[in-house]
Design a protein around this nucleic acid. Structure first.
Lengths: 186, 186, 186, 186
DNA sequence: GATGAATGAGACTTCATTCAT
DNA sequence: TATGAATGAAGTCTCATTCAT
C-alpha cells in the first residue's frame, strides 16, 4: 500500500513536479481515498521524502552496478554520461526533488547531501581501483557528478546536441592526464 | 514601474521559489496594489518570464565580461567555476526558473533553450580565439557549462567541499590535451 | 460588508457555537463567497475576535445605560439580574466566546480580561455614587458580575426556577448591610 | 479499561477542550488502539457523557464533604468560594462541558440540569440545618451556586484580584440579614 | 493608469467512524 | 476483546484572476 502510493506519487511528480501534484490526484491514481493517503503519510512532505528515498536508492543501485562491471574506466564513465542524463523520467524527477530540497525542506536537503556524499565516495573508490595513482580523485569525482547533473539539465532543456561519445573522448583525455604525467605547458 | 515589480518578484522568487511566492506578496514588496501588478503583467507566467529574461541577461553579461578580459583561458574558466556556482542568490533563482521551464511553460523552455545555445556559442568562440586548434570545442563548451550547472546544484545542496583551484587544475589538463596531442594509452 | 459578515457569524456562533460553525456556513449566510470572507478576515480567529468585540461593546453599552437611569440601586441591580441572564441569545454567545477565550486564544483572553475589568470599574463607580460609604465596593462589584454570569449559565442549562425578584431581595439585603453597619452576630 | 480511557479523555479535554481533542489522541494517551476505544464507547459523545458523569460526581462528593464538616455556615460557604473557583483544572473542564451541554447534546444538558438541581437541594438542606429561619433558602442556594460559577469564569479569565475573604465577608452579611430581620431602609 | 474588493476553485489536513481480522 | 487499516465528509486557508470605479 505504501509502495503503491509512492509509485503513484513518483509518476505524478515526474510528470508535473511536486508542487503541482495534489494529494487528491495521487490518491486517485493509487485508487485509494485521500484519508488512506493521510493514514500512511502524515504530510505531503513525508511523501515527498519517501519518494526521494526510493529515487535516490535507485540511482545509487545503478551507479553500483556500473562500477562493478569490471569495464575499463573510460567505458564506465562513458556509460555514466550516456545513461543518466538521457533517462528523461528520472532526470525530471531528480530536478524536481532537488528544487524541493533547496527550499523549505531541511530533512530532504540532508538526504541529498548524504547521498551525493556517498556517490562521491563510491566514485573515488572506483576510480582509484581502476586507475591507480590519480592525483586528485576527489576533485575528479565531484567534477564528474557535476557534469552529469549539468547534462541532465541540458537534456531537460533540450539543449544537448552533442553526442555522448564526444564527451567521453574528453573524459578519456582528462583521465589520461590526471594519472600524474608531468604538467606540460600548452 | 515594470522594473520595480520585476525586482521585487526576483527577490521573492529567489527566497521562496516561484510557486510559493504569491502575487499578493510581490505587490506588497513593490508597494503597489495587486490591480496594478495585473495592469503590467497579464499573468503570473508573464511575470516569471520577465524575471527570467532579466536573470538570463545578467548571466550573459557576466559571461561576456569574463570572456573579454583577455586573461589566459585557464584563468577564465577558473573564474567561471569560481564565480557562478558560488553566487548563492543567482544559483537559487536559476534552479527555480529551470524547474519552471521544465514543466508547463513552453515559452520559458524556449527562452532557456535559446540562451543556453547562445552561451555555448560564446564559449566556443572564446575558446577558439585563445586556444587555436582545439579538436572539439563544441563538446568542450557544453561540458563546461554542464559542470558549472552541476556545481551550482552541489553548492545549493551544500555538498561542495572541493576548492575551486582543484577543479581548475583538472580543466587545465583537459585543455592542454584537447589541444590535439596524439592520444596516448594511459 | 465587514459588518454583514460579523452579523452572520454572530448569529451562527450563537446558534451552534464557534467551533461547530464553519466559514462556509458563515459566507453562505452572508451571501458572499468564502474568498470574500478571507479577504476581510485573515483567519477564523480574526473573525471570532471581531464578533467578540461587537458583543462586548453591546453589553458594555447596556450596562452604561442601566447605570445612568438614575434609578435607586436595588432597581438597577434588579434590572441587571433580570435582563442579562434572560437574554438567551447573548447568553449563549457569551458562553461560547468565553470558552474560546479560555483555550488557545491569547488575544481573546486579553480582550475579556480588559472588558471585565472595565465593567467592574463602572459598577464600582455607580455603586459609590448612589450608596456612599460602602465598605468594599470592589468585592461587591466582582460578586455581582459573578452572580450574573452564574445565572447566565443556569439559564442556559434551564435550571433557574427562581424568579428574579427573590434574587433582588437578597441583593437589597446585601447592599443595606454593606453600607457599613456594625457587624452583628447572626 | 473504561476508567483508563475516561481519565485520559478527562485530562485531554481539560487541556484543549472537547472539540479539539481527537479520539486518536485519547487512545494514544490511554495506550490503546482507536478500535479498542470504539469497543468501549460507541461514539465520541458517549465518552463525553462518561467524562461528565465522573466530573460531576467528583464535584458532588466535594460539596457533600464540605457540608458535613459541621463547620459554621460562613466557614462552609467561605471554603466553597475558596476551593471551587481556584481549582483550575476542574474549572476548565467544567466550562468545556457546560459548553458542550448547551449545544447539540440533549442528554448532557439533562445531566447538568439534574446535577445542578441536586446541588441546590443539598445546599438548601445544609443552610436550613445550620441557619434555621431563613426566609428564602432556595434563592440563596441558587445565588451561591451562581456566584461560584461566575467566579470560576473570572478565574479562568484571570480577572479575580479580590481575595476570597472579602467575598466571604459579603456572604456573612447576606446570611445575617437573610435570617429574617425586618427590612431597614438604607 | 491604478486600485482593491470580490471570487471560485482547489489545496492540504483532520477526524469520527467502520470493519475485517 | 482488541486492533489498525481504510474511508469520506468536511474544515480552514490560499491564491490567481476579474472588474467596477
Amino acid at each position: 500500500m505504501r509502495n503503491r502510493i509512492i509509485n503513484s506519487a513518483s509518476e505524478l511528480f515526474t510528470e508535473k513536479g511536486v508542487e503541482k501534484t495534489s494529494l487528491a490526484e495521487i490518491s486517485a491514481k493509487a485508487n485509494i481515498s485521500k484519508g488512506t493517503l493521510y493514514y500512511h503519510f502524515t504530510t505531503k512532505n513525508d511523501l515527498v521524502f519517501a519518494v526521494t528515498e526510493m529515487h535516490m536508492e535507485n540511482l545509487t543501485q545503478n551507479l553500483l552496478k556500473l562500477l562493478n562491471t569490471g569495464d575499463p574506466p573510460e567505458e564506465i564513465v562513458g556509460k555514466l554520461f550516456d545513461t543518466v542524463p538521457n533517462a528523461e523520467t528520472r532526470s525530471r524527477l531528480h530536478i524536481y526533488l532537488v528544487r524541493e530540497a533547496v527550499t523549505e525542506n531541511r530533512e530532504l536537503l540532508k538526504k541529498f547531501h548524504d547521498i551525493y556524499g556517498r556517490w562521491k565516495k563510491m566514485l573515488i573508490k572506483g576510480l582509484n581501483e581502476v586507475i591507480p595513482g590519480l592525483e586528485d580523485p576527489e576533485a575528479l569525482a565531484g567534477f564528474f557528478i557535476a557534469a552529469v547533473d549539468g547534462l541532465v539539465i541540458q537534456n531537460l532543456l533540450s539543449i544537448n546536441e552533442v553526442e555522448t561519445e564526444r564527451y567521453v573522448k574528453l573524459i578519456k583525455l582528462l583521465l589520461k592526464n590526471e594519472k600524474g604525467e608531468e604538467n606540460v605547458k600548452y
